[in-house]
Amino acid sequence: MGKTGLKLIDENGIRIDGRKPDQLRPISMDVGVLKNAQGSALVSYGKTTVLAAVYGPREALPRHMTLPDRAILRVRYHMAPFSTTERKSPAPTRREVELSKVIRESLEASVFTELYPRTTIDIFIEVLQADGGTRTTSLTAASMALADAGIPMKDLIAGVAVGKVNGKLVLDINEAEDSGGEADMPVAMMPNLGKIVLLQLNGTLTRDEFKEAMKMSIKAIKEIYLIQKQTLRDKYAKMTEEEKEE
């Protein structure tokens, strides 16, 4: 039983939405969805849908915020009022401010900010629909938008959350599992370099569970990474085909 007394996994090990414990939700991605942004991406993990847009590098205003040796990253993570079941006030909450910081610090590990001193790179992340795992979905989307904008970075970032529900580790938890479960651990990595850029843990896991959860997330991140790469490659392949049809 979960915290709320809800049964989230049945006798056959099938989860509330019909998935196996180590199964990801259906993932869809698209890049270059906004024309006015230098780079943009729309990413869905199941019902969680996030739109990320990158503007820059551009002149930073106010000027005193700029750094003489590198660009600053400004990240705004925001949940749309209609993204949750009950209307969320559009004003930034403590949680959103914190998540903006967490996402920014993860992206800073990858972006070569020293190439553009005295400028800013603005990243706007809008959660259009929230169903658990929004911070990892946001990171995946933001890194793709950065790549689409042509901003040099070490590697793409992919993230996924592992949770503990009814005493069992489950991959890519949704809202019901997040609120009814015992633990939630978002992980984000630069998969090609094998470096972890985000690791948070809410709840408790034993050492063995932690190790197992890491293993599960790394495997899933590699899967997501493949989709990310394919989506970016497809953008250029698709444009080529359209050209031929004309």
């Binding site: 990858s110 790549a147 040099p152 970075m153 070490k154 590697d155 793409l156 630069m190 998969p191 090609n192 370099l193 790469k229 970016l232 490659r233 250029y236």
Partner: peptide, 8 residues
């Protein structure tokens, strides 16, 4: 070849 960030 088209390369992406992080490609060797």
């Amino acid at each position: 070849d088209i390369v992406l960030p992080g490609d060797l």
